[in-house]
Design a protein around this nucleic acid. Structure first.
Length: 943
RNA sequence: GCAGGGGUGGCUGAGUUGGUCAAAGGCGCCGGGCUUAAGAUCCGGUCCCGUAUGGGUUCGUGGGUUCGUAUCCCACCCCCUGCACCA
């Protein structure tokens, strides 16, 4: 293999692909289609390793599916609305539009340099009016269908971002984007009715191939709980208090009712009493405090008696009404029935405020049911102490049903499924997003912008001061004639959450040029669902819920027939790199601190630990630099080979270099193989069979998206096979013609430029490997299998023989010069075959003994010896042989013949003068070592 | 607290329908061939012991089931992710 290699001109290949438009997605009659998609990126100026990894995975899949004969849709675009560009405009001047376009241009160039096989003709950008027009159109349709509505409601407000946030965008009380505190504010905002699809979103999870943790995340977020709403009357008042509970079976244990401080009734019943001030304090504490502080203070339960009593719906008992800080206004009804005996929080609260605790369940059937409870017993139990007949003794679900029936009969309660998911708050008080297409008219009220006036385009004449919503500074935008009556009216200045953009972009990709519809139904239905969707786990409960919701909503408006947008989701792992780490302090430091230097906190010597690549740690690697130095192929190969797609991977410069060497080595392979001039030989059939086997392994791995394994086969194992071939004397230049086309196809999924170079140099190929089809696999013949088995046998034998040789030479005190290989005596083989057949047919090995006694080999005076051999040696071995070995043993493979044919080779490999092969216990066996020879495992005697 | 995912040799990482497992592959390290040399590449070694094909101890910890367990069961510890006074 030559060392005088010119690097592959990757850019030239990229240009050729582009000129020939080979990655354009087309629909071919009769061909299956495959939609391969990566989460489209926000166009920051630079591509980082996370992008590289994401797209290297997707591209390998797309290329593989093309090889396998699919019409592949593999698009790229930009999630180009969003706050970073607007914040940059505020900080540095300029306009978000220009900043975004500039960033897009530079990141696009970098992505193209990687050689990914996108259909760039479908490039989509969210901030294109031709795209966001459809956001607006959908919005007006949602209004028509009652799925979009404006409400005055408490919402999450991030003052750092100067906008409201959806529930999904609040992480542990903080803003998902800036990590600033989030507070509650009452505002008029637009919501989409995501809860209408709760049940379907939950059920749909069972029909799609998402990772378990993502499903679990989504289930948590949907938060289904089954229970009942129950009405409590109020003593001396007309109102009722409605509570939600999952435990109607504990209804008779209610000793008080608790309202959230924000509950409207709380204010009503304390108004004008001497308790009003106390309530106000509590109200202020929970509502004005940021959610973050509230969570921190959660541990302290606090409450007050309201002075009022509720009436128990079934017993008519008086129950005190309390107001407590632990009741959440926005969940359920904002009021709970308190059963201290069977709920931990109620127990704690009741103990604190000396409220009676009444047991109404026992945890063991027929158990004692008086006596004091030490703690709440929250499991299902048997009802006791019921003041009404017919309930005691009922258990769990049956008990709940009985209580619900009683409530329903009394007309003061009903069964209900409650969800945690709230409507999607989509209003944002920011400029760089889709304007909400609504006009407010004094006479006509809230008027949607008519279809013919769409899109409502973002105006240029706005001021980015960092204060307030910039859209409000545009007079031309703000003032508009009412579409209904023509009078002066005012436009909505809020824009849409940018997650709207990413909720349907995969549909637009199917028909990106359509200017009369968002997408043609037939085309979208042809390509959808996305077969393979690859991206980061961070979108598990935002984007991936919204997109599923949107797909279902659009389906119900008749725009598609798709239930779920994504079939298989793959969340790629993070790209990490070693960073300084103090094991005592448990702190990861920036790369400014050298490994081995003392920790700045405790002075202990710093070690290193793998950490996510981040600007703050400084452990980033620039893809650009790496491509420049090693080429895109090497970077891609390394990324795919370093770890499985879903696993975290560690960046390693040395491993990268090792992969670069593999790329160089592969580059020289065609020349190397073509130089073989030995003509046909006995090893050719083996190499052919072996290669075919490798191809099947490759296909199987790719089918399961086990890209690491696939690359291991295509870029590593086949090289080893070639080495073995030449080592065993193979030197047929014809093999190059036989193997290289298919091998190039395998190589092309991860290192396409290199593969094109191979392809171009071959006589039998034309066009591009990137647009070629892989021939169908060939079924292996029996001869091929025996061939493979024979070589495997020799390899295994050599490995074993080498080990023994070391020990033997120590024993001999000098290098061994000769070896006698003692193949297992034929009766052992016969025995093994009989035992294996017995086992394969389902027999228990231990029951083989009686059969053995009947066998001809066990007759005569050797019977005892053979029985002993079976128990001690053969029985354990029968279990240990793998399927391949079993096949070989039961096959016609003649160990002695295989070894004899390879005896010269063996002698060379073991560095011996002569090698003698004998059958154990035969006349020529003078070694006396036949005892330790087993089928597939000959004994070796060194002299 | 609840839920989901994990803990394998110097590192990384396969392997989990129990037997093919002292445990693939890669990296690192060691030795050898090739070479004037370097690089590249090829071959071999890389838990411990062992004058012959073997033995010992290993897959978070401790128990258990089994002829046999990295793999199955139970308990515990630790790590990651998400949710969290959700009634």
């Amino acid at each position: 293999m030559s060392s005088e290699l010119t690097p592959v001109d990757e850019v030239a290949w990229q240009k050729k692909w582009s000129d020939a438009s080979i990655f354009e997605a087309v629909i071919t009659e009769g061909k299956p289609s495959f939609y391969c998609l990566e989460m489209y990126p926000y166009p920051s100026g630079k591509m980082h390793m996370g992008h590289v990894r994401n797209y290297s995975i997707g591209d390998a899949v797309a290329r593989f599916k093309r090889l396998m004969g699919f019409d592949v849709l593999y698009p790229m675009g930009f999630d180009s609305f969003g706050m970073p560009a607007e914040n940059a405009a505020i900080a540095e001047g300029g306009h978000p539009h220009d900043i975004t376009e500039r960033n897009m241009a530079s990141i696009t160039e970098q992505i193209k340099r990687m050689g990914f096989s996108y259909d760039w003709g479908r490039l989509l950008k969210s901030h294109d009016p031709n795209y966001y027009k459809w956001n607006q159109w959908f919005f007006t349709k949602f209004m028509e269908h009652g799925l979009a509505r404006r409400e005055h409601a408490p919402v999450n407000w991030c003052s750092a971002c100067n906008t409201v946030l959806a529930n999904e965008q609040v992480k542990a009380g903080r803003c998902w984007r800036c990590n600033g505190p989030v507070e509650q504010k009452e505002m008029n905002q637009w919501f989409l009715d995501t809860p209408a699809y709760c049940q379907e979103l939950l059920d749909g999870l069972d029909t799609i191939d998402f990772p378990e943790n993502v499903k679990s995340l989504q289930r948590d977020w949907l938060g289904r709980s089954e229970g009942a709403n129950i009405q409590f009357g109020l003593e001396g008042r007309d109102e009722t208090i409605e509570v939600f509970t999952t435990r109607p079976d504990t209804l008779f244990g209610v000793t008080f009712v608790t309202l959230a401080p924000e509950h409207p009734l709380a204010e009503t019943i304390v108004k004008g009493t001497d308790r009003e001030a106390e309530w106000k304090d509590l109200y202020d504490e929970v509502s004005i405090m940021t959610e973050f502080d509230r969570i921190k203070n959660m541990k302290k339960k606090k409450g007050m008696f309201s002075g009022c009593y509720a009436i128990h719906p079934l017993t008519n008992e008086r129950v005190p009404i309390w107001i407590g800080n632990f009741v959440i206004a926005s969940y359920g009804t904002g009021a709970v029935m308190a059963v201290p005996a069977h709920d931990e929080r109620d127990f704690e609260f009741a103990s604190q405020y000396d409220i009676p605790i009444r047991r109404v369940l026992v945890m063991e059937e027929g158990a004692q049911h008086d006596g004091e409870l030490k703690k709440a017993e929250t499991d299902d139990g048997w009802m006791v102490n019921s003041p009404i007949d017919g309930f005691d003794g009922r258990y769990g679900q049956e008990a709940r049903n009985a209580v619900c029936e009683a409530l329903e009969a009394a007309g003061c309660g009903h069964r209900l499924v409650n969800w945690k998911l709230r409507p999607w708050l989509i209003s944002r008080q920011r400029y760089w997003g889709t304007p909400i297409p609504v006009i407010y008219c004094e006479d006509c009220g809230t008027v949607p912008v008519p279809d013919e006036d769409l899109p409502v385009v973002l105006p240029r004449d706005v001021v980015f001061s960092g204060e307030g919503n910039p859209l409000e500074t545009s007079a031309s935008f703000l003032h508009v004639a009412c579409p209904t009556c023509g009078k002066d009216a005012r436009r909505e200045t809020d824009t849409m959450d940018t997650f709207i953009d990413s909720s349907w972009y995969f549909l637009r990709y199917t028909d990106p040029g359509n200017d009369t519809q968002a997408f043609a139904k037939a085309i979208a239905d042809h390509w959808m669902q996305v077969d393979f969707y690859c991206g980061g786990i961070e979108h598990a409960q935002m984007h991936l819920i919204y997109a599923r919701f949107m797909t279902k909503a659009l389906r119900d408006m008749g725009l598609t027939t798709i239930d779920e947008p994504f079939n298989e989701l793959l969340c790629q792992g993070m790209v990490n790199k070693a960073a300084p780490f103090c094991s005592d302090c448990g702190v990861t430091l920036t790369v400014d601190h050298a490994i081995g230097s003392p920790c700045p906190h405790c002075s202990k010597e710093l070690g290193s630990r793998s950490a996510k690549m981040s600007k703050s740690t400084g452990n980033t690697v620039s893809p650009e630099d790496m491509i420049e130095r090693y080429g895109a192929d090497t970077v891609r190969l390394f990324i795919l080979f370093a770890a499985n797609p879903t696993a975290g991977m560690d960046w390693s410069d040395t491993a990268l270099e090792a992969n670069h060497r593999v790329v160089l080595q592969l580059q020289g392979i065609p020349d190397y193989m073509n130089e073989w001039n030995g003509g046909e030989g006995p090893m050719d059939a083996w190499l052919e069979a072996r290669f075919e086997q490798r191809r099947l392994e490759f296909i199987a791995a790719m089918d399961e998206y086990d890209l690491r394994r696939a690359v291991e086969v295509s870029h590593f194992e086949i090289i080893k096979d070639i080495n073995w071939y030449t080592r065993r004397g193979g030197l047929n230049g014809e093999m190059a013609n036989k193997m290289l086309p298919v091998w190039a196809q395998m190589v092309s999924t991860s290192t396409p430029h290199l593969a094109e170079e191979w392809w171009e140099g071959m006589a039998s190929t034309e066009g591009f490997v990137s647009s070629s089809l892989m021939p169908l696999p060939i079924e292996s013949t029996t001869t091929a299998l025996v061939n493979l088995a024979g070589e495997q046998y020799i390899r295994d034998f050599l490995e074993q023989a080498r080990k023994i040789k070391g020990v033997a030479e120590r024993h001999l005190g000098q290098p061994a010069s000769e070896a006698t290989i003692v193949v297992s005596p034929s009766w052992k083989r016969t025995l093994a075959q009989a035992a294996l057949n017995f086992v394969i047919e389902g027999g228990h090995p231990k029951q083989f003994m009686p059969l053995l006694k009947e066998m001809p080999i066990a007759q005569g005076d050797r019977m005892g010896e053979i029985m002993g051999f079976w128990g001690k040696k053969m029985l354990p071995q029968v279990f240990k042989w793998d399927d391949a070995s079993r096949e070989i043993i039961c096959s016609t493979l003649d160990e002695e013949a295989v070894l004899a044919a390879a005896s010269d080779f063996i002698a060379t490999e073991l560095n011996l003068k002569t090698v003698l092969i004998v059958e154990g216990e035969s006349e020529s066996d003078t070694t006396g070592r036949a005892g330790s020879a087993m089928p597939l495992s000959p004994a070796v005697v060194y002299v």
